[in-house]
Design a protein around this nucleic acid. Structure first.
Length: 289
DNA sequence: GTGTTTGTTATCAA
DNA sequence: CTTGATAACAAACA
């Protein structure tokens, strides 16, 4: 369940490891995971290199050095996608980590992997095959970003004024708003619940009923929750690992997600779980109003 | 066999 | 046309 903090952690780490390194070979083990013709995919990427890695919401965009027809490789991890890198030395040691905490590669869920000229390898694993890799032109990339992604949190575009504007002339509840990528991008089920807890607001509240003070609290909580989660290198609940195959530690700091039946860390009320907006939704029965 | 997990899209209704 | 609510999908596990 990689959301903004998890995808950003991968972006930052991976960029340092692979930027500018020439791609020597690619193995496509599951053609379904690549949304281009395999021959196109190989022709464009072999002998090319990734200049840098951008991110919009939960979508990674690898900028190609040689950018003719295709300028970006889009990678969406969806529910269970992973991007794991091993350098030459790690691979010579068997490719497998010495610590049980780290995912071994390749494994039965490896769908695509890249080998670089320096001997390093990048593995795309995806248990449920929902994620994808897709080459697009500069124009396609810009169109996709413009049509599918709302305000990007943690950037100068995310102002209180821009956030307040999302609440105008709209009739929905706060959780659905937070999950709507076209309005605000990068928040998924875990952080939507955590943000509502931080603001002491029930996820089911209609946005029309929220006071301007409550909207302001939500705004601040979006920044706070996402920043702290990034500092903790993301939340590993099921499948998420960073580009070293290592878990994030933010699960230890979750206040509501996955804590149903347990006591609230602050008010000692009980954490409840309901189905809302089609998703498991967690909240403190006492301190969220 | 059943229920559960979620990011995204498809579909239908208002 | 816009918006919103819900279903569906994928795959594995308890």
């Amino acid at each position: 369940m990689p959301e903004l903090p998890e995808v950003e952690t991968i972006r930052r780490d991976l960029e340092k490891k692979i930027a500018g390194e020439k791609i020597k070979n690619i193995e496509i083990l599951a053609t379904k995971s690549v949304h281009n013709k395999s021959t196109d995919f190989l022709n464009v990427l072999v002998d090319n290199n990734f200049k840098h890695i951008e991110r919009r919401g939960k979508l990674l965009m690898f900028a190609l050095d040689k950018a003719d027809k295709y300028a970006f490789l889009l990678v969406h991890l969806k529910m269970t996608g992973q991007l794991i890198y091993r350098n030459k030395k790690q691979l010579l040691a068997g490719g497998h980590s010495q610590t049980a905490m780290v995912t071994n590669v390749p494994n039965k869920f490896t769908r695509v992997f890249f080998t670089f000229n320096d001997g390093g390898q990048l593995f795309f694993n995806d248990l449920r095959r929902f994620g994808y890799l897709k080459l697009v032109s500069k124009e396609e990339k810009e169109k996709i970003v413009a049509n599918n992604f709302g305000i990007e949190p943690l950037t100068p575009d995310f102002t209180l004024e821009a956030f307040v504007r999302l609440f105008k002339k709209r009739q929905t509840n706060i959780k659905a708003l937070l999950l709507n990528q076209k309005l605000i991008s990068g928040i998924g089920n875990i952080y939507a619940d955590e943000i509502c807890f931080c603001a002491k607001i029930l996820p089911t509240r209609k946005i029309i009923d929220l006071s301007s003070l409550e909207i302001k609290k939500l705004y601040k909580c979006i920044e706070d929750v996402l920043k702290i989660a990034i500092a903790n290198r993301g939340t590993t609940f099921n499948n998420y690992v960073d580009s070293d195959g290592q878990s994030g530690s933010h699960i230890n700091f979750l206040n509501v997600y996955g804590r149903d039946g347990e006591k609230c860390k602050y008010c000692k009320g009980v954490i409840l779980k309901i189905k809302h907006a089609g998703r498991g939704t967690h909240f403190c029965s006492k301190c969220q109003k």
